[in-house]
Simulated assay, not measured.
Amino acid sequence: MITMQYGFTLPADYDMSIIDRRIRDKGPLLDGFPNLGFKAYLSARKGEFGSRDNLYAPFYLWLKPEGASDFLCGPGFEALTGAFGWPQVRTWIVWQAEISTKIAAARFATREILPTQPYAPLADIRGVEGAEAKADVATGGALASVSGFEPTSWTRVRFRLWRELPEIGEQTQAYRVGHLSLPRP
Rank of each mutant, 00 (worst) to 15 (best):
A12H: 10
A12Y: 00
D13L: 09
Y14G: 05
Y14K: 10
D15H: 06
M16F: 12
S17L: 09
S17T: 15
I18E: 07
I18S: 04
I18M: 06
I18L: 10
I18C: 03
I18A: 10
I19V: 13
I19D: 02
I19C: 01
I19E: 01
I19N: 00
D20L: 05
D20F: 10
D20Q: 11
R21E: 15
R22I: 03
I23K: 00
R24N: 09
D25L: 12
K26E: 14
K26G: 08
K26F: 14
P28G: 07
P28E: 01
L29M: 12
L29P: 01
L30T: 15
D31V: 04
G32H: 06
F33Y: 13
P34R: 04
N35C: 13
N35K: 12
N35E: 14
L36A: 04
G37T: 06
G37F: 05
K39S: 01
K39N: 04
K39M: 06
K39I: 00
A40F: 05
S43H: 12
S43C: 07
A44Y: 00
A44P: 00
R45H: 10
K46I: 06
K46F: 08
G47Y: 08
E48S: 08
F49E: 00
G50K: 05
S51A: 12
S51C: 02
S51L: 01
S51I: 04
S51G: 03
D53K: 15
D53G: 05
D53A: 11
L55R: 10
L55P: 02
P58F: 02
F59M: 05
F59N: 02
F59P: 05
Y60E: 02
L61E: 02
W62L: 06
W62V: 01
L63G: 09
P65V: 10
E66Q: 15
E66T: 11
G67P: 08
S69N: 13
D70V: 10
D70A: 10
D70N: 15
